[in-house]
Design a protein around this nucleic acid. Structure first.
Length: 274
DNA sequence: GGAGTTGTTCCGCC
DNA sequence: AGGCGGAACAACTC
């Protein structure tokens, strides 16, 4: 499940290799993941352009191309972007192949085909639904404790759904939401409006800490996630609640509860989180 | 072969 | 009217 730390790790692993490369040819094995434009336009516009930058916003990867075009890729649940030597055979789930100069290919692989790819003139970036409405990056200067305080108190609902809401904070998904709430000692069903100032501060620090740790350990590989070199992350060994339902709390030893909150599988410690 | 998996969008309700 | 909750949907693996 690529969330901010995983997408950032992919970005960092691709950037040094892709910068300055030219897309010579694009092979489309499955066109369903290309949301804009139609597949033949997609191929025609891409071929011959060079890659000027590899950026990220929330869970979206942004490839800045020559001629003011941007290739936007969202990996959703099982998408992978991997660099392979030219000519290496593709798997049955390889949907896009970007043949680059200098004997390198970039493969888009996605077991479930939930990923989304857009190619747009850069100034039209806000036409992509999810991208326009994103909240601040959690590790940027825009994301301050007073911003969090203001947003928390601006609406109802519980903390889990708040953390998953990309318009409040960009890039948090199910894994990091559970880890952040455990770190902060806050119950996923806790209502936003009941938080004290001290609890909002704990939440703020936990968001910063867990997102930073996720990046530092190069993401969480529970099932499919790998970076641009095909390497797994290391954060799965440091998870305290996610995927640990029924196991013992690392802090107090009680049994961790797994339930559904905000429509998502959610694990928490009933003793440590209030 | 039914259950489980999550990010995003959309719809209906209050 | 707008915010919120929940459902739907995508498609594959085990």
């Amino acid at each position: 499940m690529p969330e901010l730390p995983e997408v950032e790790t992919v970005r960092r692993s691709l950037e040094p290799i892709l910068l300055g490369k030219t897309i010579l040819q694009v092979v489309i094995n499955y066109s369903g993941i290309i949301k804009k434009p139609d597949p033949s336009g997609f191929r025609a516009i891409l071929e011959g352009r060079s890659i000027l930058g590899v950026g990220r916003r929330g869970k979206y990867l942004l490839f800045k191309l020559s001629g003011n075009y941007t290739l936007v890729i969202h990996l959703r649940m099982t998408g992978q972007l991997v660099l392979v030597e030219k000519g290496r055979e593709s798997t049955k789930h390889t949907h896009l192949i970007f043949h680059l100069n200098e004997d390198i290919d970039l493969h888009f692989v996605d077991i479930r085909k939930f990923g989304m790819v857009y190619l747009i003139p850069t100034e039209h970036w806000n036409e992509i639904g999810g991208l326009a409405g994103l909240g601040p990056e959690p590790l940027s200067a825009d994301f301050t404790q007073s911003y969090l305080e203001e947003r928390i108190s601006a609406g109802k609902g519980n903390l889990k759904s708040f953390l998953l809401d990309q318009s409040q904070i960009a890039g948090i998904g199910n894994i990091y939401a559970d880890e952040i709430l455990f770190e902060a000692g806050l119950h996923p069903e806790r209502l936003r409006l009941t938080l004290s100032g001290e609890e909002i501060e704990r939440l703020y620090l936990a968001i910063n800490l867990k997102i930073k740790e996720g990046i530092e350990y190069r993401g969480t590989s529970i099932r499919d996630y790998v970076d641009g070199r095909g390497e797994k992350g290391g954060f799965q060994d440091r998870l305290k609640v996610y995927d640990r339902g029924g196991k013992n709390c690392v802090k107090c030893g009680n049994t961790l509860i797994k339930g559904i909150v905000a429509g998502r599988g959610t694990v928490y410690c009933p003793n440590c989180q209030h």
